[in-house]
Simulated scan of single mutants.
Amino acid sequence: MATATLTTKGQVTIPAAVRCALGLHAGDRVDFVELERGQFAIVAATKSVSDLKGLLNKPAKPVSIEDMHEAIATKGAGLA
C-alpha cells in the first residue's frame, strides 16, 4: 500500500507507483470520488470532453423543445 503525508498547506505528493499506475504526468488533474463516508478513490481526470462522444445512446424518440420546457417547468414547480 502506498502512503503519503499531508503538508500544513493541505498538499499531498502522490507516490510514484500510484502516478505510474494511473498514467499521471506533471500538470495532469485528478478527481477525488467519494465511495462511501470516509473513503475516496483517486481517478485520473485526463480525458477531454470530446472523449465522451458516443458514451450515451440517442433517445429512442426525439424530445421537442415544448416537452423540454414543460418538464423544466414541472420539475421547477415541484410537481414531479
Rank of each mutant, 00 (worst) to 15 (best):
K9Y: 04
F40V: 14
Q39T: 13
A26G: 08
A41F: 13
F32K: 01
L35G: 11
P15Q: 05
L6P: 07
G27P: 07
A21P: 02
R29V: 00
V12L: 15
V43F: 02
G38T: 10
A45F: 13
T8W: 07
V33S: 01
V18W: 00
A21Q: 12
A21R: 04
R29S: 10
A41I: 08
A26W: 04
A4V: 08
A17P: 06
R29L: 12
P15S: 04
K9M: 08
A4N: 01
R29P: 00
A45V: 05
T5V: 03
V18A: 10
K9G: 07
H25K: 14
G38Y: 06
G23E: 03
D31W: 03
G10H: 09
L35K: 11
D28K: 01
V18G: 04
L35W: 07
I14L: 13
T5F: 00
V30L: 01
A16P: 07
H25R: 13
C20M: 09
A21E: 12
R37P: 11
I42A: 06
V30K: 10
V12N: 06
G10M: 03
F32W: 11
A4I: 02
E34K: 15
P15M: 05
V12H: 01
A45I: 06
L35Q: 12
P15D: 06
K9L: 09
T7A: 10
